[in-house]
Simulated scan of single mutants.
Amino acid sequence: MPLMQIIVIAIIQGITEFLPISSSGHLAITSDITGWADQGLAMDVMLHVGSLFAIIVYFWRDVLNLAIGGLNLLRGRLTPHGKLALYIVLATIPAVIFGLILKKTGALDALRADDLLKLQVVGWAAIVYGALLYLADRFGPSEKAMENMTLPPALVIGLAQMLALIPGTSRSGITMTAARFLGFSRPEAARFSFLLGMPAIAGAGLLTIKDAIETGTTMSSDVWLGAGLSFLASFAAIAFLMALVKRISFLPFVLYRFALGIFLLAMAYGYVSL
């Protein structure tokens, strides 16, 4: 794989995985502009591994507390961190079930095989879910912190995460939208979204690893480079977003999603050609 392709897709994936702007939309544009071939299963796995480690490193205190709480839970001792760990696990289940259904039915594979339909879906999703993010951020209260999390809101955010399987939705964007509608502050909505993303990203990575093993795919030096670049880009994106949402609203990301969606739809309906 060309070095430039590794660098570009790793940076795009790492940044857009965590900013609420849709990684699939940007990868679709990149593919159309460059004409690059698909990066393959092994690269997909390692890009997600890099993103996962970025969450673990940035939120290492939260991750450590969740791990300790989970161990205490297994020993029959319920602590606040143990409850939060349980909520994250339970909130992940809807997306796992929905993902398995889509995988078994081949719905997502069919969508990926139709470039025109994919552009249309990603474009409309970028606009519609951008509008929802604006409404949630504009009118949602901001009095709750992650320590106030209970099972019902965790499950609602988990159900929202299912929609992230639709290209163009943005996993971080839809979970932050749900959290804002439920009254969590911007920093706390982002924090819970990233922690909730750990099992989701890990699960997607394990499924891809399984597919890679079944197809006999090997791990070359290219994929390790991609993982490293994805880690750096992901860490920078997380740090940038966490700093930004303490000062301003999600409006810049909403406007960006609108622009992205309009551009993709213009491409899909033949008004713009690359």
Rank of each mutant, 00 (worst) to 15 (best):
R247I: 08
G173C: 14
H48N: 05
H81M: 13
T169V: 14
I101N: 07
L90R: 00
P20F: 00
A202Y: 04
A131R: 06
A131P: 06
T92Q: 05
M176W: 07
A110E: 03
M4H: 13
D114K: 13
T208K: 13
K104F: 05
M162L: 08
I101L: 15
D114H: 12
F139D: 10
S234H: 04
R257G: 00
R112C: 14
K144Q: 10
P94M: 10
P141L: 15
Y269F: 15
A202L: 08
L195I: 05
T215H: 11
P199V: 13
L133A: 03
L73H: 05
V96G: 00
T169L: 05
L159P: 01
A131H: 06
P167S: 15
R247M: 08
S221D: 10
L255H: 10
Q5K: 11
S142I: 09
F192E: 03
H81L: 12
L196T: 02
G76C: 10
I56C: 10
A160M: 02
I93R: 02
L151W: 04
H26I: 06
I56Y: 09
Q120T: 06
S22W: 10
L111W: 08
Q161R: 00
N148M: 15
L19Y: 01
V45A: 14
A266S: 13
H81T: 08
S172P: 03
P80R: 10
L27W: 05
I209N: 02
M219L: 15
N65F: 04
P167T: 07
L86I: 05
V45P: 03
D222G: 10
I93F: 02
G158I: 00
G261V: 11
G226K: 10
P199W: 08
A10W: 04
M43W: 08
M198N: 04
L206G: 06
A200M: 02
L86A: 03
A113G: 07
T92E: 12
W124T: 12
R138K: 13
R247T: 11
D38Q: 09
A259Y: 14
